[in-house]
Nucleic acid binder design. Structure first.
Length: 594
RNA sequence: GGUCCCGUGGAGCAGCGUGGAGUGCUCGCCGCCCUGUCAAGGCGGAGGUCGCGGGUUCAAAUCCCGUCGGGACCGCCA
């Protein structure tokens, strides 16, 4: 190394040492006879002082973000001049020699003094100059945190004998539901690779291989629209094991999470994580990833409304969220909820304000309800004087989902979320199938009527449904599980089917013909003819996990070079048009015969 | 595919409703002064296609239409 010390590591004990430092000029404070420079390197900041001689002359020329090397003596700062805000604030380095390693243009946004990720600078500008953005301590910390997370993961996985095995990026479509990214193949014009949406099929093959314990920090690709927490390439911690049951997955996951939260945040997570069935989670929270940092459980009023003449409540499901103290809602607030519901495609939300004073009249949009039903409604909903009740009615599933979203929105709005708390749980026994609909197309090319796999078609049914899932697909339950933290789905997986007969019944339910199954993943089915072990696994969204542990909402903050929401890379300018020659060589316009 | 928001010197904003000279603020940048600052300070200065195109108007940063870029949400995404 061309330096002897890290700038941020110097302490009072180093006083008197001669040091050589390298780094960037963070700030320069020129007082004429004395010049102070904050020198920054990967370890932190230290103040260096120039007084006289050639070094001091050179210091006059220094500008922000110049890269320099300097030699000097560490000294205790004069009395009264220490800086308690700096780790190195008790000392400074008096410079005897200065070498400019490289000069810098004026940076497009301030680098110094921005320990927070959010400095107010436009994101696109930050991504465009991400290499400068990462000189800032806040963004750099997020990336460093991610690296520590990967390190903890590898330690835990290796402790349990898992093998880190790479799987192909140039492959064929896997059975997930998203659109594939496609790569043309020069040597076979008109033929295309798909980039993997996950290593799903390969990890199952590795179980057939008898490797028994696989993990990979794998890049995955899905060509879908963006969200704040979604980007076209992302990273999964992918895990698969043989001869296991759910408890093994739960135990491993909990150990991993405990270790991550302890090491990164210094938080001790209690285990085991509570478990909820999917059905119970939907019933109580209207979500398959409930946030348990607040209560506000949904109320089921379907029975209370049975036989009502009131049109809006003549529905498969009538439910409500009771807003504590919500009687202070203004008409504008309530109209706001209407708009909110409509923006989610719902018909609307009915409301009732329960007056705080005894005997006062109920106010609301449903006061024309039958009087006895109305009178007993507050009690049936569990509302107290001063509360508001927000109702939704309609088909059971969509109504519960609307109420679940409402529950989250109300909790945020009313400040009911206990920030700083960590609430993990397992959501288990999801349905195996869901009805095919226009916005939920079948995996079959024919797109025939019927059912599609909720998780993926290799997910095993629960013990109770092993013999009967194909006769009642609507109610069949899967050995699938999601781990949820603070309302975020952090990971999910399942126990797989390893028996050919059972697999065929699943294909029959989802209307996948033998020919189609053969052409899509015949290689997996063939592998399963050679004594496949019982196996299963789980995958975690590493970006979401890292963002959570780094204390940011945006997964882009834990990616070194994130993409903009159009899918473009503001730094390199990708994607770009291709030349005619590239187009011709790639063979992308060729239609293969047959 | 849909809804909403943003685009003004290098950065962050205000100005737009009710059209009237590129007006203003904070920071940065350049020059000079300055021996204890750490958001150093003082004085002076430079820097603009108001995203782009069209329209309305005597006159457009401001109003209208379109478009591009960015962001959030719904759909979509196991």
């Amino acid at each position: 190394m061309i330096r002897t010390h890290d700038a941020g590591s110097l302490r009072i004990a180093d006083a008197g040492s001669e040091v050589v430092l390298t780094g960037w000029v963070s700030r320069r404070r020129d007082h004429g006879g004395v010049v102070f420079v904050d020198l920054r390197d990967g370890s932190g900041l230290v103040q260096v002082v120039f007084r006289e001689g050639p070094a001091a002359e050179g210091a006059k020329e220094l500008r922000s973000e110049w890269c320099v090397k300097l030699t000097g003596e560490v000294r205790e700062r004069p009395a009264g001049n220490t800086n308690p805000d700096l780790a190195t604030g008790e000392i400074e380095v008096v410079v005897s020699a200065l070498e400019v390693l490289s000069e810098s243009e004026t940076p497009p946004f301030p680098i110094h003094g921005s320990d927070d990720i959010d400095s107010g600078v436009d994101e696109v500008t930050r991504w465009r100059y991400r290499y400068l953005d990462l000189r800032r301590t806040g963004p750099a910390h997020a990336i460093r945190t991610r690296a520590r997370i990967a390190s903890v993961i590898r330690r835990v996985m290796e402790r349990h004998g898992f093998l880190d095995i790479e799987t192909p990026y140039l492959t064929r479509s896997t059975p997930e539901g998203a659109r594939d990214f496609l790569v043309p193949v020069r040597l076979q014009p008109g033929h295309w690779y798909a980039l993997p949406q996950s290593p799903q099929l390969f990890k199952q093959l590795l179980m057939v291989s008898g490797l028994e314990r696989y993990y990979q920090i794998a890049r995955c690709f899905r060509d879908e629209d963006f969200r704040a927490d979604r980007t076209p390439e992302f990273t999964q911690l992918d895990i698969e094991m043989s001869f296991l049951d759910e408890e093994d997955v739960f135990a491993l996951t909990e150990e991993l999470f405990v270790e991550l939260w302890r090491e990164i945040l210094g938080v001790e997570l209690p285990t085991p994580f509570p478990r909820l069935t999917y059905a119970e989670s939907m019933r109580r929270y209207g979500s398959d990833k409930p946030d348990l940092r607040f209560e506000l459980e949904l109320v089921d009023l379907t029975a209370h409304m049975a036989g009502t003449e009131f049109r809006v409540f003549q529905a498969e499901h009538v439910g409500a969220v009771v807003v504590p103290g919500g009687a202070d809602y203004t008409r504008k607030d309530l109209d706001g909820w209407q708009e909110w519901a409509k923006s989610r495609g719902a018909k609307g939300i009915a409301w009732l304000l329960v007056p705080a004073e005894a005997g006062a009249e109920l106010r609301g949009s449903i006061t024309k309800l039958e009087p006895d039903r109305l009178a007993s409604l507050s009690a049936a909903a569990g509302a107290k004087p001063g509360d508001a009740i927000l109702f939704a009615a309609g088909p059971r599933r969509t109504t519960l989902e609307l109420l679940g979203a409402l529950r989250n929105a109300v909790a945020r709005q009313r400040g009911l979320v206990r920030e700083g708390e960590w609430q993990f749980l397992w959501v288990v026994e999801a349905p195996m199938f869901e009805p095919v609909s226009s916005d939920n197309p079948s995996v079959t090319d024919a797109g025939g009527p019927g059912w599609t796999a909720v998780h993926h078609p290799f997910t095993a049914p629960t013990a109770e449904w092993e013999q009967t899932f194909h006769t009642d697909p609507e109610h069949a339950l899967a050995r699938a599980y999601d781990v949820v933290g603070n309302g975020m789905e952090l990971g999910g997986g399942s126990i797989r089917i390893h028996r050919r007969e059972m697999q065929q019944r699943v294909f029959d339910v989802i209307g996948l013909s033998r020919e189609e199954a053969e052409s899509k993943f015949g290689f997996l089915l063939e592998a399963f003819t050679f004594g496949p072990p019982p196996h299963g696994g789980i995958a975690f969204g590493l970006d979401r996990l890292a963002a959570t542990l780094a204390g940011t909402d945006a997964i882009r903050e834990v990616m070194a070079f994130p993409k903009a929401s159009s899918g473009g890379d503001p730094l390199t300018g990708a994607p770009t048009p291709i030349t005619d020659r590239q187009r011709s060589e790639a063979g992308i316009d060729v239609r293969p015969d047959g």
